[in-house]
Simulated assay, not measured.
Amino acid sequence: MSTKTRLAQQLGVVAGFENPRVDLEQYRTPPDIAAHLIHTADLQGDIEDRVVVDLGTGTGMLALGAVLRGPKRVVGVDLDPDPLATARANERRVAAAADVEWVRGDATQVPLAPKEPTTVVMNPPFGAQSGNEHADRGFLATAAAISEVSYSIHNAGSEEFVESFAGDNGGTVTHAFAAELDLPHQFDFHDAERQTIDVEVFRIAWDGAET
């Protein structure tokens, strides 16, 4: 197993969104956060020889991190075809030994029903835009439906919501850690050149999965 630092370096070549959509809250997941999430999942036995599904994969950061850690299969799902094209180019940049299946689809109505042990990884929209509140709820519902365990990034202060949602849907939050998300100036409403926001990452074991 490579180190978390080495994984972050490998993911440093992953390009972000060329034309990000504000309605989908499209931001590139920073390589260091992606590496931390994937490394933690790997240490828990949630990557190697398992199916890994990246919901709302964007340009593929989490999916490509997972494929570098010996999964059985990796699937990246996104509604927007443009970042999926970038994700395919990023796959070539990372030069992983295994392929990723890139699927265009709605992460909240994902057309997947894996029969093998499955882990979901995701950086869902936080619901920060008007009319898009609680957007991460649908992503968590999909994770509950198709996986035994999930790792997800949420806005700081989401612990009560995530624990409540998990409890209502047969899940248990087993791990949580805080991180910082560095956002570049990419939309008209951004005032600063860069902005750092606090986030939280949660591991949820679903439907009686091992904790």
Score class of each variant (00 low, 15 high):
173 V>E: 02
171 G>N: 03
88 R>A: 11
123 N>I: 08
122 M>T: 14
137 R>F: 13
152 S>Y: 00
51 V>N: 02
57 T>H: 00
69 R>L: 15
4 K>T: 13
185 H>N: 14
4 K>W: 08
210 E>Q: 13
156 A>D: 10
152 S>M: 09
21 R>K: 15
132 N>R: 15
1 M>Y: 10
12 G>R: 13
111 P>V: 10
189 F>P: 06
164 S>Y: 05
92 R>C: 07
201 V>S: 08
199 V>N: 04
176 A>V: 12
168 D>L: 11
75 V>T: 10
105 G>R: 09
121 V>K: 00
196 T>N: 06
36 H>M: 11
15 A>I: 03
69 R>F: 06
124 P>T: 08
138 G>I: 07
152 S>N: 04
155 N>G: 12
179 A>I: 05
151 Y>R: 03
58 G>F: 03
49 D>P: 02
34 A>L: 09
188 D>F: 12
37 L>F: 01
160 E>Q: 14
152 S>F: 00
150 S>L: 08
90 N>G: 07
143 A>G: 15
198 D>R: 13
82 D>Q: 14
91 E>P: 04
55 L>Y: 02
94 V>Y: 06
171 G>D: 03
67 V>C: 03
155 N>H: 12
81 P>E: 11
183 L>I: 13
17 F>A: 09
158 S>F: 08
1 M>D: 10
183 L>N: 02
32 D>T: 15
137 R>N: 08
51 V>Q: 01
8 A>N: 05
62 L>R: 00
126 F>A: 00
175 H>M: 10
85 A>N: 13
23 D>I: 09
75 V>A: 02
23 D>L: 08
38 I>T: 02
206 W>Y: 10
65 G>D: 04
153 I>G: 00
10 Q>W: 07
47 I>A: 02
194 R>E: 14
137 R>T: 14
29 T>C: 07
144 A>P: 11
185 H>K: 15
1 M>T: 12
103 V>W: 07
104 R>K: 15
90 N>M: 09
191 D>W: 07
185 H>L: 11
117 P>D: 13
2 S>W: 13
34 A>S: 13
22 V>N: 04
98 A>D: 12
37 L>K: 01
54 D>K: 01
47 I>D: 01
185 H>P: 06
9 Q>K: 12
9 Q>C: 01
130 S>L: 13
28 R>W: 01
186 Q>I: 15
65 G>Q: 05
18 E>C: 09
116 E>K: 07
98 A>Y: 09
39 H>L: 02
201 V>W: 06
94 V>S: 05
93 R>Y: 07
165 F>N: 00
75 V>L: 09
194 R>A: 12
104 R>F: 08
57 T>C: 15
27 Y>A: 04
71 P>M: 09
172 T>C: 07
9 Q>T: 12
167 G>L: 12
185 H>C: 12
156 A>F: 08
183 L>H: 04
43 L>M: 13
32 D>Q: 11
50 R>I: 06
77 V>W: 07
66 A>E: 03
76 G>V: 01
50 R>C: 04
50 R>N: 08
127 G>W: 01
46 D>Q: 10
9 Q>A: 09
127 G>S: 08
40 T>L: 11
25 E>A: 10
120 V>T: 07
11 L>E: 04
108 T>M: 12
5 T>N: 12
141 A>S: 11
155 N>C: 03
